[in-house]
C-alpha cells in the first residue's frame, strides 16, 4: 500500500497558482517598496477593486465545472451597472428596488441561456456570445453616454458605496506624523467573500454541487447514473448569471458609473482567473478557492502595471492573456501526458 499521497496534476496546478501569487506579490513588494506596495492596505485594495470579479469568477467556475463557458459576463455587468445608474438618476427609483430588478434580470438572462445550452444543446460559446453582444447592445439602448451617480441622486446607494469597515489598528502602518492609520475595507468585499464561501460549501456538500462535477467529468456516465444532465446544466447557467448580477452590483458600488464600454474584457479576466485557479476547461475539476487566487493574481497584475505608472494599461490585458495561454497549455500538456500514460 502506498503511504505517500500521490500528487495529481490538478493539485500541482493549484500549488503553481498559489506560488505564483506569492512570488508576484513579493516581487511587487521589493520593486515598489517606496510606493507603498508592501502595505496591507494595498492588498485590501486589490480585494476592493475585484469584489465584483470574485463573484463573477465563482459563477464562471460553476459553469466551467459542467464543461460549459459563459462569455456574456462582462457585457451583463455593463448592462447591470448602466441599469442601476440610469434607474437611480433618471427614473429616480430607490436603491433596493433597482438591486432587486437587476437580480431578477440576471435570473431571466441565465434562464434563457441555460435553456438554450441545456435543453436545445446549442454550443455554450455561441449562446453566450450572442448574450454578450445582446447585453452590450442593451447597455447602449438604455443609454449610450456615460453617466455617474452622485449623493444627490440616491443617498442610500451612495452610503452603501462609501461605508468603510475599519480593521484593527495593529494591521495598519504608521504615517509620517507618527499616527497609526488603520486599514479599511468595504462591505462589497465581505459580500464577495460570503458568496465565495457559500459556493464553496455548495460545491462540496450539496447534491447540486456534486451533480455539476459529475456532469462535467463525464456526461454519458452522469446520464447513466440517472442525473438530470440538462437540468443541471441549465441551473449552472442560471447560477452564473445570478452571481454575475451580484458581481455587477458590487462593480457598480465600486465605480458608481455606467458606460457602454464598461467592464470590456471582463469575461476574459473571469475565465483566466478560473483557469489559473485550476478549473479545467473540459469540466469536472476545479474549485472556487483556486479561483480566488486566480482573481488575486489578476488583480495584482493590474496593480503592478498601475504602480509602475510608465506602462500603458493594455499591458495588463496582454499579461492576463499570456497567463491564460500558459495555463491552458499546461492543462492540455497534463491531459496529453495522462492520456499517453493510460494507453
Amino acid at each position: 500500500m502506498k503511504t505517500r499521497k500521490k500528487l495529481d496534476s490538478n493539485t500541482v496546478l493549484i500549488i503553481i497558482t498559489i506560488a505564483l501569487f506569492v512570488f508576484m506579490y513579493a516581487v511587487g513588494c521589493v520593486m515598489y517598496q517606496d510606493k507603498g506596495f508592501g502595505n496591507f492596505q494595498t492588498f485590501l485594495n486589490v480585494l476592493i477593486n475585484n469584489a465584483g470579479l470574485i463573484c463573477v469568477t465563482c459563477g464562471m467556475t460553476c459553469v466551467m465545472l459542467t464543461g460549459g463557458i459563459d462569455i456574456s459576463v462582462g457585457s451583463v455587468i455593463a448592462m447591470d451597472c448602466m441599469l442601476l445608474v440610469y434607474g437611480m438618476t433618471e427614473w429616480k427609483m430607490g436603491a433596493v428596488p433597482m438591486v432587486i430588478l437587476v437580480l431578477v434580470i440576471g435570473l431571466v438572462f441565465g434562464l434563457v441561456q441555460g435553456f438554450l445550452v441545456g435543453y436545445l444543446e446549442i454550443q455554450p460559446f455561441i449562446v453566450t456570445m450572442a448574450g454578450m453582444f445582446f447585453a452590450r447592445g442593451m447597455t447602449a439602448v438604455i443609454c449610450s453616454g456615460q453617466i455617474s451617480i452622485t449623493e444627490a441622486d440616491n443617498p442610500i446607494f451612495y452610503k452603501w458605496a462609501n461605508s468603510k469597515i475599519t480593521l484593527p489598528e495593529f494591521m495598519g502602518k504608521v504615517n509620517r506624523h507618527g499616527k497609526v492609520i488603520a486599514p479599511y475595507m468595504r462591505p462589497t468585499v465581505v459580500i464577495a467573500l460570503l458568496v465565495l464561501i457559500l459556493i464553496f460549501l455548495m460545491l462540496k456538500y450539496t447534491k447540486f454541487g456534486r451533480n455539476m462535477y459529475a456532469v462535467g467529468g463525464n456526461q454519458t456516465s452522469a446520464t447513466m447514473m440517472g442525473l438530470n444532465v440538462k437540468k443541471t446544466k441549465m441551473l449552472s447557467y442560471i447560477l452564473s448569471s445570478f452571481l454575475c448580477s451580484i458581481g455587477g452590483i458590487l462593480y457598480c458600488l465600486n465605480t458608481m458609473s455606467g458606460s457602454v464600454n464598461q467592464a470590456k474584457g471582463l469575461e476574459m479576466d473571469a475565465i483566466a482567473s478560473a483557469v489559473i485557479g485550476g478549473t479545467l476547461l473540459t469540466g469536472g475539476v476545479g474549485n472556487v478557492i483556486g479561483s480566488l487566487f486566480g482573481v488575486l493574481i489578476n488583480g495584482t497584475i493590474t496593480v503592478l502595471v498601475n504602480t509602475n505608472g510608465k506602462l500603458l494599461s493594455s499591458w495588463a490585458n496582454i499579461a492576463t492573456a499570456a497567463l491564460l495561454c500558459v495555463f491552458i497549455i499546461l492543462q492540455s500538456v497534463f491531459a496529453l501526458v495522462k492520456a499517453r500514460r493510460n494507453n
Binding site: 456570445m129 492573456a321 491552458i328 497549455i329 492540455s332 500538456v333 496529453l336
Partner: peptide, 15 residues
Amino acid sequence: LKIQPMVATLILFTA
C-alpha cells in the same frame, strides 16, 4: 494542443 477553439481564440480576442 487540442484546446477548444473558442477558448484558444479568446486569448487573441483580448490580447
